[in-house]
Amino acid sequence: MTAKIKEFPGVGLRESDFTERKVLFTEWKPDARYAWDAGVAIGRYLAELKEGRIIGVRCHHCRRTVVPPRIFCEWCFRPMDEWVYLEDHGVVNTFSICYVQWDMERLEEPLIPAVIEIAGASKGVGILHLLGEVDPREVKIGMKVKAVWKPAAERIGAITDIRYFKPIN
């Protein structure tokens, strides 16, 4: 139907109609700020990242080793039994190649988020991070990758203390 209409009646809205307030509207910019207590499990995880190590936890009941750590096993609903240091390398479980920014503008260099099954943790357990130093066309599920850490002096106890994971042979 619209294909038959050559010229729409009326006038389109321009940005100036808003800036000159010819169109009435109300704006609100929320000031919502939070600071989450890390607590026991996440607190230790972040402290270890600052030291350049990845730590997980183990449940003796279901015999899973999981990362990031938590104080309870969500399957068995009992306290975790021990802290376990894990390797800083692993295998890509799944990945995506993200070509858009937050405003959906195209990215020149795509980001490559990936779930990396960390060596030492149970099958299927991994952490979410980015892949780097790799051609997006070369990334494969099952690829071995290793953490590229920030220098010790720059680490603050955050997931970004690892810059990204890069392929190893």
């Binding site: 989450w36 607590g39 996440i42 938590r70």
Partner: peptide, 19 residues
């Protein structure tokens, strides 16, 4: 203030006791 626990750990403690 409860800086020693995350909200998840706070909930877990209450849940364990209730069960």
């Amino acid at each position: 203030l409860t800086p020693e626990v995350s909200y998840k750990e706070l909930m877990y403690e209450a849940a364990v006791k209730a069960y």
